[in-house]
Amino acid sequence: MSNKKLLAGFACSALFLAACSQTATETIHDHLEQAAEIENEGFDTQQQPLVDAEERGTELYSQIVELDMDQFEEIVELADQAIETVNERRELISTEQESIEEGYSEFENAEASFEDLEDDELKVLAEEMQTAMDERHGSYQTLYTLYNEALDLDEQLYEMLKDEELDVDTLTGHIDTTNEKYEELQEATNNFNDHTTTYNDAKRAFYEASDLEVRFE
């Protein structure tokens, strides 16, 4: 079962170096960097625990398939432990999704100042940045949905393994379905990461064309 690996939020972070009266570009900068901070905090908090829970689930599954039906009680015990990792992942991905939504809401606050931009080039770059962010946000919704569907399939698998009368063909069919779902999830993850890169590039282009003095990390 593949791990879900995301870029660490907004990889392109900029430190605002100029301090004077608040212009439209400065207001936009403040909201964009606040959005980045919100997301980065969410990812930093959730990513490693997610990976750890996924790895524990994979290890438990490996232990289960090494056992035979004479060790059924141990199979049930391990399956219950694996279900606990599924529930843990549900909580973690939910918290991660909340940080995505909070960051997106903060980005929308920046949009309110786009119309105040006087430079035509900046307006075009701001529109490109908005499009990139909207597509990124949409790609995460797909990823989040697929991740939860994969979790449902994982839980169903572990419940099936607790059935002494489980039919092998039924189990094999479910495993195939689960693997297909994880393939979809990996594609969605790659898509989200690509959109994150596109957004970061668009944000950087906006900053570089503006009157802001920023330092990129």
Rank of each mutant, 00 (worst) to 15 (best):
T197G: 01
E128S: 04
N40F: 03
R56M: 06
D152E: 15
A150F: 01
I100Q: 05
S62D: 15
T95H: 10
I175A: 03
D30N: 12
T58F: 09
E37P: 08
Y199N: 00
Q47T: 14
E55I: 11
L92R: 07
L212G: 05
L6Y: 09
E88D: 14
N191A: 13
F216M: 11
A36T: 06
K5P: 02
E41S: 15
G42C: 08
Y158N: 00
Y147P: 02
D30I: 10
R136E: 03
Q46K: 12
A126R: 01
T197K: 05
A126H: 05
H174G: 03
N200L: 02
S99V: 05
I28N: 00
L212C: 06
L171K: 08
E121R: 13
V76Q: 13
L151H: 02
D44R: 15
L212T: 02
E73Y: 11
A150C: 14
A209K: 01
L7A: 11
T58Q: 11
V124E: 12
A110S: 10
T142V: 14
R204I: 10
S13H: 07
A150V: 07
E33I: 06
V65F: 11
T131G: 04
I75T: 08
M160Q: 11
I93C: 03
A202I: 00
E102W: 01
E184K: 07
A79W: 01
F206S: 00
G173I: 09
V51I: 15
L117N: 01
L117S: 06
Q186H: 13
E135L: 05
D176P: 04
D176Y: 09
F43G: 06
D70W: 05
T177I: 08
A24C: 11
L92H: 04
E26K: 13
Y140N: 04
E77P: 05
E213Q: 14
T198R: 07
F72Q: 04
I175T: 12
I83R: 08
L7E: 14
E106T: 10
F107T: 00
